[in-house]
C-alpha cells in the first residue's frame, strides 16, 4: 500500500505527520520526495548506507559532424536549441532531457551524456527503509528525480511518501500511483484555499484522500464546514501545542514524547487501511 502525505500549502505539518506515522508503524518504506527542501531525515535520523547519483541524459552536439540543418531545434519543444548558419547554441537549463534531438539528427551529431541532477540517499532508521531525494541547486528536473526515486518502491511493503508542497508537476510526480493521500492543512484562509486546490488535483488523479487538521484550534471552522459539505473525511485533528512546536524546532518526533497521540495516529491508519482495501 502506498500512502502519500501532501498539503498544498507548505509548513502545515506534512513532514510532522509523515515521520510520526512512520515511527509508529515501524516497518515501512519511507520516501522523502520533497526533493527541493527535504526535511524528514532531520526527524527520522536514518543512517545512510548508500548514496546514488540521479542522472538524466543530456545532449552533446558535435560541431564537426553537424550540418546545421535545424532538425533538432525544430523538434525541441522547449526551445533549448538554436541552430545558426555555422554554429549551434544549446541552453542546458531549458532542456528536459527527452532525447528527441538525438533521435532526429540525421548526421549522428547529437550524442548523449549523463548529467547529475541530484542524489538519492538510502538507509535505515530501525525497521524503516529510508529513501531521500536531494535535488542539486539550480536544477529544474525535480520530477525526473522523484520518478527515479519511485523506481525503488517495494510494493510488498507499506510505503509512505512525503510529497512536496504545491499542486503542480512535482506534487503530481510524488503522489501519482498512491493508494491514498493524507492532506495536512490548518484552519486558516490560506490553509483552506490550498487544501481545496490539492483536493481538486487529487480528484483529477483519482486518488482517495482525507484531511489531517493541524493546529486545529487556531483560525475558524470554514474548513470543517467544507469537509462536511463535500463529504471529505477528517482523519485526525492535532491542536496547536507549544510543546509540539518546540519538539519540531529541535528535530524530534512528538509521538515519542507525547504518547497520548499514538492512539489517534493508529486509528487514522486503520481507517486508511480499511478504505484502501475496498
Amino acid at each position: 500500500m502506498i500512502v502519500s502525505i501532501a498539503s498544498g500549502k507548505g509548513g502545515t505539518g506534512k513532514t510532522t505527520v509523515a515521520v510520526n506515522l512512520a515511527a509508529l508503524l515501524g516497518d515501512v518504506q519511507f520516501l522523502d520526495c520533497d526533493v527541493e527542501e527535504p526535511n524528514a531525515h532531520i526527524f527520522l535520523k536514518p543512517s545512510i548506507g548508500k548514496t546514488d547519483l540521479a542522472t538524466v541524459l543530456f545532449p552533446y552536439f558535435d560541431k564537426t559532424k553537424c550540418v546545421f540543418c535545424g532538425k533538432c531545434s525544430g523538434a525541441c519543444q522547449y526551445n533549448a536549441i538554436a541552430v545558426l548558419p555555422a554554429n549551434i547554441a544549446f541552453f542546458e537549463h531549458m532542456c528536459h532531457g527527452c532525447g528527441v534531438c538525438t533521435y532526429v539528427c540525421p548526421e549522428g551529431a547529437v550524442t548523449e551524456r549523463e548529467k547529475e541532477i541530484g542524489r538519492i540517499l538510502s538507509g535505515s532508521a530501525g525497521k524503516i527503509n529510508f529513501i531521500g531525494g536531494r535535488m542539486n541547486s539550480g536544477e529544474i528536473l525535480s520530477a525526473m528525480l522523484i520518478k527515479t526515486m519511485k523506481e525503488l518502491i517495494d510494493p510488498s511493503r507499506t510505503v509512505l511518501i512525503d510529497a512536496p508542497p504545491g499542486t503542480s508537476c512535482q506534487f503530481v510526480s510524488a503522489v501519482h500511483g498512491s493508494d491514498y493521500c493524507i492532506l495536512v492543512s490548518e484552519p486558516t484562509p490560506f490553509g483552506v484555499n490550498d487544501f481545496l486546490l490539492a483536493a481538486e488535483a487529487l480528484e483529477k488523479l483519482k486518488i482517495p484522500y482525507g484531511l489531517v487538521l493541524n493546529r486545529a484550534d487556531i483560525g475558524n471552522d470554514e474548513i470543517r464546514d467544507i469537509c462536511a459539505r463535500k463529504n471529505i473525511r477528517i482523519l485526525m485533528e492535532i491542536p496547536f501545542d507549544m510543546e509540539i512546536a518546540r519538539l519540531y524546532s529541535v528535530g524530534e518526533m512528538f509521538l515519542e514524547k507525547m504518547p497520548q497521540y499514538k492512539e489517534k495516529f493508529k486509528a487514522m491508519f486503520e481507517i486508511i487501511s480499511e478504505i484502501t482495501k475496498k
Binding site: 526551445n79 533549448a80 536549441i81
Partner: peptide, 16 residues
Amino acid sequence: EATGGAGPQSAQLAAS
C-alpha cells in the same frame, strides 16, 4: 507567444 526560449529562437531567426 513562446512560453520559453523566445530569445534564442529570435536570434536564430535573425541569423537565418
